[in-house]
C-alpha cells in the first residue's frame, strides 16, 4: 500500500478520456473528451440522464474499465496503461465501490461482507477485523453485524455496502446511485452518513445521482450529457 500523497495531490485526475463501446458494427461513444479532477477530500456529485455515461466514468476512474484513450491518475498512480493484474491490485488498495444495485455476498453476514475485502486483498487479519467493527459501529450496524443481507433492510444493506467500500482505506470512493433504491428520507440519511464518513477520513468521492437534492451533500456538482462533461 502506497502512502497517501500530500493534501494538495488530487484524488483523481482524468484527462481527455474517450470511451467507445463496440458492438459489432455499432459504436457507442459513452465518454467524449471527458476531463475531471477531484480534490483529495472532495465529494463530487455526478448528475446526468440515463445512458449519459455516469457508470462508465466511475468504472474508468475505479479501474474496472479501461478507457479507449486519455489518462487516468488516482493519487500519484497513473492507471491508464495497466493490465488486468495491475488493475486488480489497484482496486484492492486504492478505490472503493458502492454499486448501483446492492451487491452483498448473500451467504456472508454484515461483518463478513466487510472482511471479504481483506480476505481477497491485503490479508491483514486483526487490524482489518478491528476496522470492520469500527466501521459497523460508525454506520450504526453494530447490532446487525451477524445478520445476513436477507435479514437487513434496504438502508442497512446500503450501509453495509458503504462499509465494504471503506474497508481498504481507499483514496477514492465511487458511489453509483447509492440512494436510488431508498425513499427520500432514508436517502438523505445515507447521504449524511456518506458525507460524514468521507470528511472524517479525508477521502474523496464521486456520487452518481439523478436526484438534485442529493447534490446538497456534495461539495461540487458536475453534469454529464451524452458522454460530455459540463461543470
Amino acid at each position: 500500500m502506497t502512502a497517501h500523497a500530500s493534501e494538495a495531490t488530487p484524488a483523481l485526475q482524468m484527462a481527455d478520456i474517450r470511451k467507445v463501446y463496440r458492438m459489432g458494427d455499432n459504436e457507442v461513444v459513452a465518454l467524449d473528451h471527458a476531463s475531471l479532477t477531484v480534490g483529495a477530500d472532495e465529494i463530487v456529485a455526478l448528475v446526468g440522464p440515463s445512458g449519459s455515461g455516469k457508470t462508465t466514468l466511475c468504472s474508468i476512474a475505479g479501474g474496472i474499465l479501461s478507457a479507449t484513450s486519455g489518462t487516468v491518475t488516482v493519487g500519484t498512480e497513473e492507471i491508464s496503461g495497466y493490465g488486468d493484474k495491475e488493475l486488480t491490485t489497484f482496486r484492492q488498495n486504492q478505490v472503493g465501490f458502492v454499486f448501483q444495485s446492492v451487491n452483498l455476498v448473500p451467504f456472508l453476514n454484515a461483518r463478513e461482507n466487510l472482511l471479504v475485502v481483506d480476505e481477497l486483498g491485503r490479508r491483514e487479519g486483526k487490524p482489518a477485523r478491528d476496522r470492520a467493527d469500527r466501521l459497523l459501529d460508525e454506520l450504526g450496524l453494530a447490532d446487525r453485524a451477524k445478520n445476513l443481507p436477507s435479514q437487513l433492510s434496504g438502508g442497512q444493506k446500503q450501509r453495509v455496502a458503504i462499509g465494504r467500500a471503506l474497508m481498504n482505506e481507499p483514496r477514492l470512493v465511487l458511489f453509483d446511485e447509492p440512494t436510488s433504491a431508498l425513499d427520500t428520507e432514508l436517502g438523505g440519511q445515507v447521504m449524511e452518513l456518506i458525507q460524514s464518513e468521507m470528511k472524517a477520513r479525508g477521502t474523496a468521492a464521486i456520487v452518481v445521482t439523478h436526484d438534485e437534492r442529493i447534490t446538497e451533500y456534495c461539495d461540487r456538482t458536475v453534469r454529464i450529457t451524452d458522454g460530455v462533461l459540463a461543470a
Binding site: G62, T88, T89, R91, N93, F99, N103, V116, L120, G121
Partner: peptide, 16 residues
C-alpha cells in the same frame, strides 16, 4: 457470474 463480478470489482483475482 454476478457475484464473481462483484468480487472481482472489489479486488478478487481470478485465481482466488
Amino acid at each position: 457470474t454476478a457475484l464473481y463480478g462483484v468480487l472481482k470489482a472489489i479486488g478478487a483475482r481470478s485465481r482466488t
